[in-house]
Write a protein that binds this DNA or RNA. Structure first.
Lengths: 129, 129
DNA sequence: ACAGCGTACTATCACTCATAGTACACTAAG
DNA sequence: CTTAGTGTACTATGAGTGATAGTACGCTGT
């Protein structure tokens, strides 16, 4: 399904959250589709079940998934996800910080704009991160 | 000089590093200008001297400052800073992640470009973060 | 009844951050 | 030389977080 990086700065459960969220947003996991069970995914990733459960709890808190007792965890309908706006704000914030960083390097608006245009084209056809 | 946020996700010494680095890059601290002493800044920020020293050591490692034994810590000359390229790569990476995030929200290139243009103008005249 | 599911709880270990305190070598000023 | 101020080094401690292990409970579908 995906991999986790033990030696990264991001914690494991954060990586699980981000990866699953991306799979949901990209449509790789469809609405009402069942996610792997906690124990199943924990074996697949070779991590502790508690770690996966922590990730699932967070995804449920953010309303990307919903849970049916005794059945499993499923992808929430896009219509019931009011927090896409929050994700959008996060994206804009990343752009803002990037612009600020490049400005500190002494780059002018025209240069920054050039870098940005290249980025847009670069990622246009790519589905990977 | 600046403030630290105790309740943020970033550690204190990282905040000190980032703040001082920004002051140097923006020119608020000029070349060969003396930084506050470890004990002085630690009192000013109400943090432990060891925390400030850790930040200074990191800034020296990144060659933003240099140290003269018994005298103090000073701003490195811009010509002796080969790692601006690294900062630039970090900025570009932020932009890339921002674009990716906004794409996951379902935004098209034209929309993303619109947000970006607004950002460029918004920060154009601002000196604050 | 049984297997599989999410959930809850306690306990432990490791790591990082921040703190406290002490000590040393250096420099400039008196 | 003495003193104050500087960076630096070191040990120790407490708090917090992340990850782990193990156990247990209630739910669902077969």
């Amino acid at each position: 399904m995906f991999q986790v990086d033990l030696k990264g700065r991001k914690s494991i459960y954060e990586q699980v959250v981000d990866n699953l969220r991306d799979l949901i947003l990209s449509g790789a996991l469809r609405e009402d589709e069942k996610l792997p069970s906690v124990r199943e995914l924990s074996k697949s990733l070779t991590v502790n079940p508690n770690t996966v459960q922590k990730a699932y709890r967070e995804l449920e808190r953010q309303q990307y998934v919903y849970t049916v007792a005794g059945l499993g965890t499923f992808v929430e309908k896009a219509a019931d996800r009011p927090q896409d706006a929050e994700l959008r704000r996060a994206g804009v914030e990343l752009l803002r910080r990037g612009v600020r960083e490049l400005r500190l390097c002494g780059m002018e608006n025209t240069e920054i704009r050039g870098v940005f245009r290249a980025l847009l084209l670069e990622n246009a056809s790519k589905g990977k991160s």
